[in-house]
Amino acid sequence: MPSAPPPVFSVERVSYHYQTVTALDSVSLTIPPGKRLALLGANGSGKSTLLRLLDGLYFPDSGAISFQGSPLVRERLEEDRFAFDFRRRVGLVFQNPDVQLFNPTVFDEVAFAPLQLRCPKDEIVRRVAAALDLMEIAHLRTRPPHRLSGGEKKRVALASVLVLDPEVLLLDEPTAALDPRSQSQIIDLLIGWGNGGKTVITATHDLGLVEDIADYCYLLEHGKLAAEGSPAELLRDQALLEGANLIHAHRHRHPEGGFSHSHPHTHPHSHPHPHDS
């Protein structure tokens, strides 16, 4: 009987600190291959730090992370062979596209990763063209990134990672600061990308996205793993979401009473509200 493939990432009791501030506190989780996972949490809950640890950019102060059964440690990432293989297979899209777009043109930006990984020139040109077409930004190829809109920058940032066709995609707030149309286009792309065969880990605090982009969720709160489960299970738990600062407190005014109050966005109260009509 064939043995099950090892998890893509195995995180065991990982802690990380920024000087005196604890970003992650003894977090353990396992990420199986081919799954779409969401890391949920409010700002400062440790989501971005965890993504950077998974991408081998930071290393835990304590605990251990392994990638497909191999320890993900500084020494291994200093070896060319492991580093090239890892960078080819795992891609990270940063929250702020300005951080990620450091090349003079869109074409150079998308070509950066295959160039650093020493792909042949013909292959680079072919891959860049395919990534630009996938993100529908071929018309921007000669434009400098600082002249692009927020949505265009995000697409370029995605193309610059998808150009390597990674097995694992790490996304930090992929729809942050985007208009609704750009958000929807990026979600559609993520749903269709890789025909469901890729591992996608998305850090977000936008609960509206979760059911579209994830099969399973981890909820982080103050650097600790507070809960895990399917999107439906977590989204049902109002107390948990409210405790983690993830649900909207919707303040509004009653026409007859003239007073205002707040309550969760799902409107569990039976009294009429102005926006129900």
């Binding site: 950077r52 991408d55 080819r88 891609g91 940063f94 450091f102 990763a113 990984l117 990672v161």
Partner: peptide, 8 residues
Amino acid sequence: LAMQARGF
């Protein structure tokens, strides 16, 4: 970090 993440 973003450069390292893409193979720099």
